[in-house]
Amino acid sequence: MASIGLINYATFMGTMIGIYAILALGLNVQWGVTGLFNAGIAGFFAVGAYLSALLTAPPSPERIMGWELPVAVGWLGAMAGAALIAWPIGRICLRFRSDYLAIATIGVAEVIRLVLRTEEMLSGGARGITGVPRPFGGLEYSLSQFAYFALVIAVLLLVYWALERQLAAPWGRMMKAIRDNEQAAAAMGKDIAKRRLEAFVLGAAVMGLAGALYVHFMRAITPEAIDPMISTFLVWIMLILGGSGNNRGAILGAVIVWLIWSMSEFVTDQLPADIATQAKYIRVFLIGLMLQLILRFRPEGLLPEESGQRTASLPPSPR
């Protein structure tokens, strides 16, 4: 009994880690490779989640759509939708540099969150959307959890493989060139604005996919789920901790941060009952502390970016 319970818990964590790893991979395309400071991850996550829910959930008189399409259509729709939203945003915001872009994307994410919260016809408003189907959802609890876990990991591997190929291609080297020295890249005839927009849209589509995976796992979406702390900053911490610029680092960061986030509660529960409740805040503190330590002692992250063969002897370029 106890071992089945532990397996169920591990399966749940694995699924959440898989979803967050995909978010971190999306951010890695934008920040790690291209140097775009996107602080509005929650917005693209939300677009993916809501769109996939609307495409696959049963209809409801209080909102639009509810087309009961296959889940795979929902996932593809989520990616396309997030990319479509990202395109005009990128067109407008990518002219800003680093910190200005961060502020603009925070604003965009808040706009998306407030629209989803307010427009009942679109998103069910504050009550959200329920009745979203889950693939293998009809199975018994443990089996259903495990089947979905396997599906999420398969999608994660697929995304990882596709992004690795994309970054190993000339496109990836070009993006790094733009990141490290924009003027030089422009002088070589690269269309900076267009290329940055490509990376922004690609990363957003991956984030939308993560949102879709999330909504089918929970079978429901409410505005609380797109809280910036949980859906934006946690992802940033994962990427920075794991190593930005490295896809394996993004995945490792997601594993470590979620394990600490989830398991630290078992440790704090061993404290005396009087302070155990207050100690729930420790996990927030632990994550912050880890980020500080990493930035102080290993700013390149646990798995730093691999530099190309020809530049292997050179020190990593400063950001």
């Binding site: 106890a2 089945i4 319970g5 169920n8 818990y9 949980i230 509660e265 078992f266 529960d269």
Partner: peptide, 25 residues
């Protein structure tokens, strides 16, 4: 009684509930 933090957030609440049901029984 086992007290868990659900954070008024579905990600945290499902994580806490999964721990409660599966690990602590």
């Amino acid at each position: 009684p086992q007290v868990y933090d659900s954070g008024c957030n579905p990600q945290l609440a499902t994580d806490a509930a999964t721990k409660a049901v599966n690990v602590n029984g």
